[in-house]
Design a protein around this nucleic acid. Structure first.
Lengths: 192, 192
DNA sequence: CACTACTATATCATTATTGATATAGGAGGA
DNA sequence: TCCTCCTATATCAATAATGATATAGTAGTG
């Protein structure tokens, strides 16, 4: 099965949702680690249902279009558990922005610097969003709940921690690049 | 144009290579930030040639099959420069392993811990490879050359720095996860 | 002599993902 | 009233990426 399928199962294991809700969840902060378009989600839901991993219930609404609310089945939960603990190889790394760094030498440093400056900003913003989310979670459920291993809150918290580390380390690297490109490498220490 | 195209141009800007050489370069440490299979590289080279971004010269060899050595053109270099400084949005994050963390709550912690243990190891190993590469570069060209902005060495060094940070932060997160899952969260500080 | 590995290029089918577009009712603002 | 936005689902074409396989010569090992 496709990774997207497990992403959807992971969301449905927490709570039943419509396709539209799933699309929202995939776009919002918590879904930062996997991304998909509507055109991929609806067919994938159909495939999950065909495989018996989810079922749907039609919910009629008077004020807006009717929706199909999907619920994970026991089979679906079992599939999610199996995927969860299945040994897995490193995913091939793919980052177009880092790829740019690999060719930074061909361009004028003063032309390249703004690019890295912008990305430093983008990553710091994302970091701030994740940190804010963690703070909100702490206020809402308390720190103890976030550390209860069988709680979805813990899983969200763990994921967010990864996100925060990722964004911070990315932003720091961008910052270093800007310093280099702007010729202010006086601060540059040695951390071989 | 496709990102892979710029990855290939980036390699050819440094040195002319055959398709086969390019495949090697994409698999080795330096090419850790983008990945492609043979079946994608050969057609892409043909497309680059059709677009006038590279040319090839047939090199006959007596001891092994003849090869086509590709060289970047002025147009190709211009295209690379333009892509280099073109404003770029955040790439959608995609990491199947982090996605697993999002569903870690459904599985038994003792079953999940080894998974994170393994990945900590994988990332530490990769980190060590990158660090070793940097050390070799320092020995071979000297630290000053690695910081010369118009040198491909600087670009490689910058890329490797990103790689090292990425691997370290990933490994540290995996380590934290293992501690959590194994119930040794005594060390857990507060870094909100 | 068979087997395996390496150099070298290439095609094919399939799957995954993206981008554009369609439909359709309700809400809210200009 | 027109326009835009939101909820809600869906299809379609195009592109990107993967996996499998083919060909073919050389070199080395058992």
């Amino acid at each position: 099965m496709i990774t997207l399928g497990y992403a959807l199962l992971g969301l449905l294991a927490r709570q039943s949702r419509s396709g539209y809700d799933l699309i929202q969840s995939m776009e919002n902060p918590v879904g930062f680690f996997w991304h998909a378009r509507r055109s991929q989600i609806y067919p994938e839901l159909a495939r999950l249902e065909e495989a018996g991993l989810v079922t749907h219930e039609l919910v009629e609404q008077w004020d807006r279009p009717d929706k199909k609310v999907y619920t994970i089945t026991e089979t679906g939960l079992a599939a999610l558990r199996e995927w969860m603990t299945a040994p897995m190889a490193r995913a091939p790394d793919r980052d177009e922005f880092t790829l740019k760094a690999f060719s930074v030498w061909v361009s004028d440093p003063t032309a390249a610097a703004p690019l890295f400056r912008t990305h430093e900003q983008l990553h710091r913003e994302r970091q701030a969003i994740y940190e804010q989310t963690v703070r909100e979670m702490e206020e809402r459920w308390g720190r103890a709940e976030l550390l209860r291993l069988d709680s979805p809150r813990f899983a969200s918290y763990a994921t967010l921690r990864r996100g925060i580390d990722y964004e911070r380390s990315y932003a720091e690297w961008c910052h270093w690049m800007v310093e280099m490109l702007e010729g202010q490498h006086a601060k540059e220490g040695d951390e071989s």
